[in-house]
Design a protein around this nucleic acid. Structure first.
Length: 427
DNA sequence: TCTGGGGTCCTAGGACCC
DNA sequence: TCTGGGGTCCTAGGACCC
């Protein structure tokens, strides 16, 4: 059996931990640049605030109902996430927990006796809330896909389910599947949903009755096959390994306001490159290729749904894999020179590192020049200082200090748990 | 005026090899 | 006129996730 533990409106919950007066008030959290709404409390949902909807369209509702609004505070969410996951590891055993995303984890429940599934699921929910202040929902079922179905049901009616749903009999499973529209199944996105509905398959129960070969043929090969198997109670997606190294690392941002000049774009790209390189070093990797891109602002056609403009990018294969920020910035700057066009307005830029391999120079490598080993040490020192002092206290000059491209963050809360000078004050 | 960011997996098809 | 069979590796693109 698998359990999936999913935090309720995670970013909102994290904000509320340090703002108890908001516990039963409507709250929303905005994406970077205060562009979209990416988390809403139940109270905010009631007022019709749409998920992933643009903030400027919801502004009226937000102001009218006095909904508490926050810019995203990833320092806080990252730390709260760690607390939740650590709680799960402590009570269920490290080897049984797979962290799936910032607010979600799968748990292998094979060690739990069948008749105790309900009690243990409830205990997970209560312990996480007691230890971290974050409310979670727990869904338990024989496969991962089914546990997500269970979790949806737990979330939909929190009163009735107490945020816990266990699907442990064929009857319960079939009933749950019948109540689940096919588009809500984990792994069925918009395209697949459209196709399924065109076949006359409307709910998850109908989908689960389809032949495996049919699923393989119509829904992306093994992807569809696994999906149907999981719905048929046959586990086909195991517990993944934790802490797998990333195969690609990206740092991309919208600008706070459109940017025109080359110097600002270079500053931004150099800054993103530094951030990406930090992520790279955190997993002791080295990148063999770097891509940089810019997105020009496109004239808007009204009555058109929002679309991103074309991405203009270029890639450089590095002479040898590296995790040294200065090397990466040099390459990135070369790319920016190539892709930048005078006179255009840009609204976004980004950097991607790929061809990531294990960094062998960490310990010093006999076969590469001494200078490079020294650079690696320099990087470690920078990372340590930046980590212990504050972000970017040490940075490369290329990152600049004008920063007129910086993203909007009008409503960011203090980083209560990761900065001494932003601790919660009790009077 | 104003619409996020960062990932994964899989498949098809091309280039290349013997 | 006629042109095999079997592989590998890489990339682009499509789908999905939160």
């Amino acid at each position: 059996m698998y359990a999936v533990v999913d935090c309720n409106s995670f970013y909102c919950s994290a904000e509320r931990v340090f703002r108890p007066e908001l516990a039963d008030k409507p709250v929303v959290v905005l994406s970077n640049n205060d562009g979209c709404i990416i988390s809403r409390s139940d109270e905010a949902k009631v007022f019709g605030v749409k998920m992933a909807g643009p903030y400027f369209l919801a502004k009226d509702i937000i102001e009218k109902h006095n909904i508490a609004t926050f810019s995203s505070n990833y320092n806080l969410y990252g730390d709260m996430s760690w607390r939740v996951m650590e709680t799960l590891r402590i009570i269920m055993g490290e080897e049984n927990v797979e962290v799936y995303s910032v607010d979600e984890a799968f748990i292998n429940m094979d060690a739990v006796p069948f008749e105790k599934l309900d009690a243990v699921a409830l205990q997970i929910r209560e312990t996480v809330e007691q230890w971290t202040g974050v409310k979670v929902s727990v869904g338990v079922a024989p496969t991962k896909v089914l546990s997500k179905v269970a979790n949806h049901i737990a979330k939909k009616d929190k009163q009735a389910t107490n945020c816990v749903t266990v699907l442990d009999t064929p009857q319960k499973i079939n009933e749950a599947l019948s109540l689940t529209p096919v588009g809500e199944v984990w792994g069925v996105g918009r395209q697949f949903a459209k196709k399924l509905i065109s076949f006359g398959i409307l709910d998850a129960y109908q989908f689960s009755k389809m032949p495996e070969e049919w699923a393989r043929k119509n829904f992306g090969g093994v992807v569809g096959l696994r999906l149907v198997k999981e719905l048929k109670c046959e586990p086909s997606i195991g517990l993944g390994d934790e802490l797998v190294e990333k195969k690609m690392i990206a740092t991309t941002r919208m600008f706070g306001a459109p940017v025109k000049d080359l110097a600002s774009i270079k500053e931004a790209v150099a800054t993103y490159t530094s951030r990406a390189a930090e992520k790279l070093r955190r997993q002791f990797g080295a990148a063999s290729a770097i891509t940089a891109f810019v997105v020009p602002k496109m004239p808007r056609e009204d009555d058109h749904p929002f679309v991103h403009g074309p991405m203009i990018s270029d890639c450089i294969m590095l002479p040898h894999a590296t995790c040294v920020t200065s090397d990466l910035i040099k390459a990135a700057m070369k790319i920016v020179d190539r892709i930048y066009e005078e006179g255009k307005l840009y609204k976004k830029a980004g950097v991607m590192l790929s061809g990531i391999i294990q960094d062998t120079s960490v310990q010093g490598n006999f076969f590469i020049p001494k200078k490079e080993n020294n650079n690696r040490m320099l990087m470690s020192m920078m990372d340590n200082i930046n980590f212990s002092m504050r972000d970017d206290i040490l940075k490369f000059a290329a990152s600049g200090n004008q920063r007129n491209w910086k993203m909007r963050q009008e409503f960011r809360s203090p980083r209560y748990t990761s900065r001494w000078d932003e601790l919660c004050e009790v009077k």
